[in-house]
């Protein structure tokens, strides 16, 4: 009984600290993202911080593709079939039609295809100030702490979700973003006895979370929603995959 009440007190204190740090418990209407439960628990209050800047690290085109799919699924859950997002880039390769399988109507995405790299951050800041948008995604090469702080301030005003895709990962400068993600593709697992590819599967890494706990998960996009694989299954699946490849090698 005593321990129970102690835990309650801890929780209460934790919430108060978060409140003092300016992280308010999300009001009703905050979008819950189906299937990402274990990942969301890494965030303060176990809620996806939608009025924040998220950073995605992109090392390769394969990761860019995986991040594109993951973000599309994320936005679809956040936007709930209404609302508009903007995608800012200089040399865009994102194929709009591919957003649809992840539940996002491609015509709800406005693309700003800029000519110069230095215009990206200005455009993003302007867009983040506009509460007519739900989310702004920008492909950024370099961003300083000061620039990211500006974006963060804009987001706090307008409650828009900001997503930065960082292409240059050699020297990652610190930023004021709320979370740093990395999405890498994983081998798919087709249904029992079926040929071909299974559902898209990714290694989702949360490298940094403000006031939260970083972690790594395996996530699948199955039947129009996310599915976070249980840890045990992840291991066994990986083993199964390895065993299969070994078998193939020997056989």
């Amino acid at each position: 009984m005593d321990t129970q009440s102690k835990k309650d007190i801890y929780d209460q204190l934790q919430k108060e600290i978060l409140l003092l740090q300016g992280i308010k418990p999300q009001s009703e209407g905050a979008a819950t993202i189906k299937g990402l439960g274990p990942i969301l628990s890494a965030f303060p209050n176990a809620v996806f911080p939608s009025a924040a800047i998220h950073e995605f690290i992109i090392d390769s085109r394969e990761q860019a593709a995986a991040s594109g799919g993951f973000i599309a699924g994320l936005l679809a859950a956040l936007m709930q079939h209404s609302g508009i997002a903007m995608w800012i880039s200089v040399s865009r390769q994102l194929f709009p039609s591919a957003l649809k399988p992840f539940g996002l109507e491609p015509d709800r995405m406005i693309f700003a295809d800029l000519k110069r790299e230095k215009e990206v951050l200005w455009t993003m800041e302007e867009a983040l100030k506009c509460d007519g948008l739900n989310a702004v995604i920008a492909e950024v090469q370099q961003i300083s702490f000061k620039q990211s702080r500006r974006l963060q301030l804009a987001v706090e005003q307008s409650r828009v979700t900001g997503i930065i895709l960082r292409n240059q990962t050699e020297k990652l400068s610190a930023t004021a973003s709320n979370a740093r993600w990395k999405i890498s593709p994983l081998p798919t697992v087709p249904e029992q006895g079926m040929p071909g590819l299974g559902f898209p599967r990714w290694q989702v890494e949360l490298l940094k979370v403000r006031n939260g706990n970083p972690g790594s998960w395996q996530v699948e996009w199955a039947a129009d929603e996310f599915y976070t694989l249980p840890i045990q299954k992840q291991v066994s699946a990986l083993h199964a995959e390895q065993r299969k490849t070994e078998q193939r090698k020997t056989g």
Binding site: P96, F111, A112, D113, K115, E126, A127, G132
Partner: peptide
Amino acid sequence: ELLDRLTVKLGNDVIHRY
């Protein structure tokens, strides 16, 4: 209004919707 601002600043062929 945001799109107007972007078009004025960045040029006419910047904003696309498909």
